[in-house]
């Protein structure tokens, strides 16, 4: 595949598009907040499997009569599976109580207990803080590595792209109110890894071309680099999306949101490595002189396989 697309002609439009999306995401995050899962809110969750379709309203009624007023009851995956959530509860025995209440109220049916989860209030906030810390540390270390391997402008551009990706994915989760739990947080960190992968490949080519191409126009060099890497970017995104869709549709309910976060992340990450990272390099005024004092190219050759 060879391409000759003038990516950077669209950069202003992309900038406006990204800004709008970022503002929308942050706005939604601030005002609508995320639909935090049990991992972060604390509380009790029970998943049951009925032999036939479960009667949700009947279950709801039984729970209310049994004293579990705030219980959220919904189907989970199929009409036989029922998910009961009591967010924010602080007693660790509610799960078993619900199970025995429902089992005794429907004696004719054998209910299969799929899972009970209880997360105490202090754990929820701790997990949230730890997740945030992990993300910041990951960003800091990667910035250091890129600054060391490339040049500080590339590090800056990569981090801007990553922050963009994380905020947009969080924004999407907030906008459509998909449950945000611990596995989604892991997915978000994987998005950082994936998006960075993309950004590095593009940056690597920009660095190489800055050294080897005759042209003095950074604009032209970056455009060429983006075109040269586009084939690879599309194929890798495609193969990754293939497995992610397979996870989304077949990996089971517990992995669904994880796959979804990564699907959004891969799409946004591919876009950002082109329009955010490359754009940031131009705005920071990268030119050939920035790489001229670097070590000679063949210093790295010793590392070859």
């Amino acid at each position: 595949m060879t391409f000759n697309i003038d990516f950077l002609a669209w950069r202003r439009i992309a900038l406006i598009f990204s800004s709008v999306f970022l503002i929308l995401s942050i706005g939604s995050w601030l005002f609508k907040d995320l639909n935090y899962g049990l991992d972060f809110t604390g509380g009790t969750l029970v998943e049951l499997s009925y032999p036939d379709s479960a009667n949700i309203s009947e279950i709801r009624q039984t729970l209310v009569l049994g004293g579990f007023e705030g219980a959220q009851v919904a189907n989970f995956g199929s009409s036989k599976e029922v998910l009961i959530k009591l967010p924010g509860t602080v007693s660790d025995s509610l799960g078993s109580e619900i199970v025995s209440l429902l089992s005794s109220s429907s004696l004719d049916q054998e209910i299969d207990l799929r899972r009970i989860e209880y997360v105490g209030p202090q754990i929820g906030s701790e997990l949230r803080d730890d997740g945030g810390t992990a993300m910041l540390i990951a960003l800091a270390f990667m910035m250091l590595y890129i600054a060391f391997r490339f040049q500080s402008m590339f590090a800056g551009a990569a981090v801007i792209a990553l922050i963009h990706d994380v905020i947009v994915v969080i924004g999407i989760f907030s906008l459509i109110q998909i449950e945000f739990d611990l596995t989604v947080l892991a997915a978000l960190l994987a998005v950082i890894g994936y998006s960075l992968n993309d950004t590095i490949v593009v940056s690597d080519r920009i660095r190489e071309n800055l050294r080897s191409m005759e042209s003095d126009s950074t604009h032209e060099i970056i455009n060429t680099s983006l075109n040269q890497t586009l084939g690879r970017t599309l194929i890798t995104s495609l193969t990754t999306l293939l497995v992610l869709f397979s996870l989304y549709f077949l990996g089971g309910e517990l992995i669904k949101n994880f796959a979804l976060a990564l699907i959004f992340g891969v799409i946004v990450g591919t876009y950002s490595s082109i329009y955010i990272a490359a754009n940031a390099l131009i705005m920071m005024g990268l030119n050939k002189d920035h790489l001229r004092v670097e070590e000679p190219e063949n210093a790295d050759e010793n590392l070859l396989p």
């Binding site: 730890d130 590595y145 892991a186 960190l189 960075l196 590095i200």
Partner: peptide, 23 residues
Amino acid sequence: FLTIWDANVTTLIVAVILLSYGT
């Protein structure tokens, strides 16, 4: 090779941080 190396090392950094912070 170098591109692959850089791309994988950075992803590995994320993975290792997840490993040490995550539960």
